[in-house]
């Protein structure tokens, strides 16, 4: 695959009224040791909207997502080539502090991973390390607002001091979203955030994603085509480390231009 001679061409359909670009990627390649996981991905991600990455397992969508806040740095032997900019600033620039980047680009993981601390401390974790709160009251306000934004506050307001690990799976995932929001990021990356949740919890998280779109740029990786269709404005289809096609969600799902996209969304492979 990696030695395919013809340069790969991504099929792009622009929005009718394009949003300003928040994230711009140009020829991003990722190599894990000797295995190349991404073969040059280029995409523009619009501000204050939800972009969904779909594609079969092992297609590189999660790998690309993890490039956007440089989480691949934590994997031994991973190498990233190409260029990604956030508001025009190269995030792989050696001058850039990765810690600062991750404060601007938050992440929610596939499996809910609350810290073994109280609900309050889970949400307060980010603001504390970044010194976002000037006083105790300030911190409390941030925690409460974040929990409210994650539509979790009403369920947990009486037990903020109980461990976050004691919540149900769906609540844990919303706690993780609240934790990410508390740092006031500009971008939230979500790596299959609902794959460990039941349908009711999934519906709540999706509703939440839709609300968050007004303030945050959201990139979500999902295996569920329905979910991509429900929550996203733009969809990108990945296959075998290539970005095959990207465009407005309704366009991708009703009128895909590429055969493989068509096959995937109609369930013929994947």
């Amino acid at each position: 695959m990696s030695s395919s001679p013809a340069p790969f061409q991504t099929i792009r359909t622009p929005d009718a009224s394009p949003r300003p670009t928040k994230i711009h990627a140009d020829g991003v390649k990722v190599i894990y040791g000797t295995k190349q996981a991404l073969h040059g991905v280029s995409i523009d991600i619009g501000e204050k909207s939800v972009t969904a990455f779909i594609g079969p397992s092992g297609c590189g969508k999660s790998t690309f997502l993890r490039c956007i806040n440089r989480m691949n740095d934590t994997i031994v032997g991973a190498r990233v080539e190409g260029k990604i900019t956030l508001d025009g600033e190269d995030i792989y620039n050696t001058d850039l502090d990765v810690v600062e980047l991750r404060a601007r680009v938050g992440m929610v993981f596939q499996k809910p991973n609350p810290f073994p601390k109280s609900i309050f401390d889970n949400v307060a974790y980010g603001p504390r390390i970044h010194g976002l709160a000037k006083s105790k009251a300030d911190l409390e306000e941030i925690v409460v607002t974040s929990l409210q934004k994650a539509s979790l506050y009403n369920e947990v307001k009486d037990r903020l001091q109980e461990p976050g690990t004691g919540l149900s799976g769906g609540q844990q995932q919303r706690l993780c979203i609240a934790r990410a929001i508390a740092v006031s990021p500009e971008v939230i990356l979500m790596d299959e955030p609902c794959s460990a949740l039941d349908p009711i919890a999934t519906a709540k998280v999706e509703e939440l994603i839709d609300e968050l779109r007004t303030n945050y740029t959201i990139v979500i990786v999902t295996h569920s085509m329905q979910q991509a269709a429900r929550v996203s404005q733009r969809t990108a289809f990945f296959h075998l480390g290539h970005l095959v096609e990207e465009g407005p969600t309704d366009h991708i799902f009703t009128n895909p231009l590429e055969q493989r996209t068509q096959d995937y969304i109609t369930g013929r492979f994947g």
Binding site: N69, M71, T74, V99, E100, L101, R102, A103, R104, G106, M107, F109, K111, N113, P114, F115, P116, Y125, G126, I129, H130, C176, R179, A180, V183
Partner: peptide, 13 residues
Amino acid sequence: RALRDGSLGLGAT
């Protein structure tokens, strides 16, 4: 590892 990732993803060193 998920716990480490969660913390690093929030911008912790």
